[in-house]
Design a protein around this nucleic acid. Structure first.
Lengths: 335, 335
DNA sequence: CTGAAAGCGCTTACAG
DNA sequence: CTGAAAGCGCTTACAG
């Protein structure tokens, strides 16, 4: 073994393990010159503290878990974006990230996750809610932060995009582009985010003194396929603008338009939500306008909140972060 | 603290910690009745061994890491599929999975990953190769297994899909469907997998006694956008079949066809590779034919190999697993 | 500012 | 088949 331990550093520096520990962990109470010497020796030796030992001794793992449905990870770029963002955030906070795929966790393993001391807390994608073991976690002693929103509980620490106003802006943007008959393809209305985005759609109408034509409100399921059909329906009903509940469905709608020879944005202007599908390579020639989720800020906030809870602070309630409307070719009519 | 330790179990069972440990870890050398009693008490107490302690004492983390480029995770379903599959495999092997996003690892952190004792080994997506710190890992003392193939080195433990023959089958399938002018959109030819799939394309021609029309071989970059253009080109050159280097590009090609009013599979039959994009909701009405990667088998094999290396066995060389051609509506002409 | 000492919860030879 | 003991590599009050 050429594994270098704290003892090695201490011995070579001529200090005690305690002092070496303080230096390594940037704790105060060490004479500057001593600190410098120890640090130098540690660097020179290439000392890396053993995490397991540190964990055991301190009761801190410096690792957090992410719970996300595997379906979400595979099927929807949203899941991948969240995973990516939380990974970045964890790294920034100097934490490791363990992946817990929602489908893969056998029943009793919940306790495993809870008590095996391998993680300090959990970031949970609200998409994972509804599974009994996930719901159970919410009330366990393990610190958790939700990305998204719980359908009922407001006591949980959570971070979410602001859905209502931003969705209203997207709708208003279509009005601005001269759209007269704007329809919407919503996510599954059992989900909070889908409902809130619909609320925003209605709000924009209200603000503009318009009346929502209810035949132009079609429920989808956040997947592309559902939007292809829904878009056909809406096109049949003469829409000239579509607000999609997410980008996947916006892409489905674009597909339907293309297949029907309906031009975008000339005949139908389209706006999505998420910002996962933007970029030319996602849907032919036209870039998709979208309400872009601030994934990095969401993740960073979530990890910060989680850290705070781990450190013993009270969990704060839901936090909401406004996204940006990014206008692309799918909705911009040159005037 | 109501944390239950091995000591609690031992005391309540009236045995030593050693014996309790043996029972908990299913090690031999314990009288059946004792084993049963200890087990029962452990269960009753809800005992969960502390992983950090176990790790420290045994030198095993029971956690493996996955290195994957974050781009891959966000942009291409392939990355998400791999991540998902490795997550499943890890769970099956009773291992935790830590995520190491290729972009997020600062230089010196390599050593961190190497020596902090948090992981036993690493599954590395070959897409991550080329980054200096990743390449460095390959030669470190940390056990690693590659999913994919190294451009040069054959000494590394790796698992990959069989690319050549399967790609040949895909091409042959188009011949079977009556295609006379089959073109291909390849991945970036700097990559082994892209080259091998092109080799398969050529091989199929050879086997069928046909000559490859080199003007029908167009290089893409595995992204959708590149395929939209490439497909336009190919359509202009009169192809009636397209073999795409992956599903993302197949979808791009389908998009191009749809936009040009070219019918699929009537005018142009299309086959992809990966099996990530199949399912109706990905591209309008038509399901995509594809060489479907055996993600679960790939991941399972990779994790098994990794485990073996961790346990001290010699690393075996590259392993290749054949994928399945799954025929969908994009290439099946009713005859 | 510094160090000696106990302890985190487990595993693992080593004796019996 | 079973147990006493040492040890994994760190942190953390507690004294000085």
């Amino acid at each position: 073994m050429d594994t270098i331990t704290l003892d090695d550093v201490a011995k070579l520096s001529g200090v005690s393990r305690s002092t070496a520990s303080r230096v390594i962990n940037d704790q105060p109470g060490v004479r500057p010159d001593v600190r410098e010497r120890v640090q130098r020796i540690a660097d020179h030796l290439g000392f890396r503290p053993n995490r397991a030992a540190k964990n055991l001794a301190s009761g801190r793992a410096s690792v957090i878990g992410l719970v996300i449905p595997s379906e979400e990870l595979r099927v929807d770029p949203y899941g991948a974006s969240i995973t990516h963002a939380v990974g970045r955030a964890a790294t920034r906070h100097d934490l490791g990230l363990m992946l817990h795929l929602a489908e893969e966790v056998p029943g009793r393993t919940v306790h495993h996750i809870l008590r095996d001391g391998l993680i300090d807390g959990l970031v949970i994608s609200s998409v994972a809610l509804g599974r009994p073991w996930v719901d159970e976690l919410l009330d366990s002693s393990l610190p958790t932060v939700l990305i998204g929103r719980h359908p009922r509980r407001t006591d949980l620490a959570s971070v979410d995009v602001e859905n209502v106003d931003s969705s209203a802006s997207a709708t208003a943007h279509l009005f601005d582009q001269g759209c007269e008959r704007v329809g919407t393809i919503t996510g599954p209305l059992g989900r909070v985010d889908a409902r809130q985005r619909l609320d925003g759609f209605r709000l924009a109408h209200e603000r503009a003194g318009r009346v929502v034509d209810e035949t132009l409100v079609v429920e989808g399921d956040f997947r592309r396929g559902s939007a292809v059909e829904a878009a056909r329906l809406l096109i049949g009903r003469g829409v000239d603008g579509i607000v999609a509940g997410n980008d996947e469905m916006a892409i489905g709608a674009m597909w339907a338009c293309t297949a029907l020879g309906v031009s975008i944005p000339g005949d139908v202007a389209i706006v999505g939500f998420d910002g996962t599908g933007s970029g030319l390579d996602t849907h032919g020639d036209v870039t998709l306008s979208s309400v872009v989720q601030p994934f990095d800020r969401l993740a960073d906030t979530a990890v910060s909140m989680l850290n705070a809870i781990v450190e013993g602070h009270q969990a704060t309630g839901p936090v909401s972060i406004p996204p940006d409307l990014v206008v692309g070719g799918s909705s911009l009519r040159r005037t």
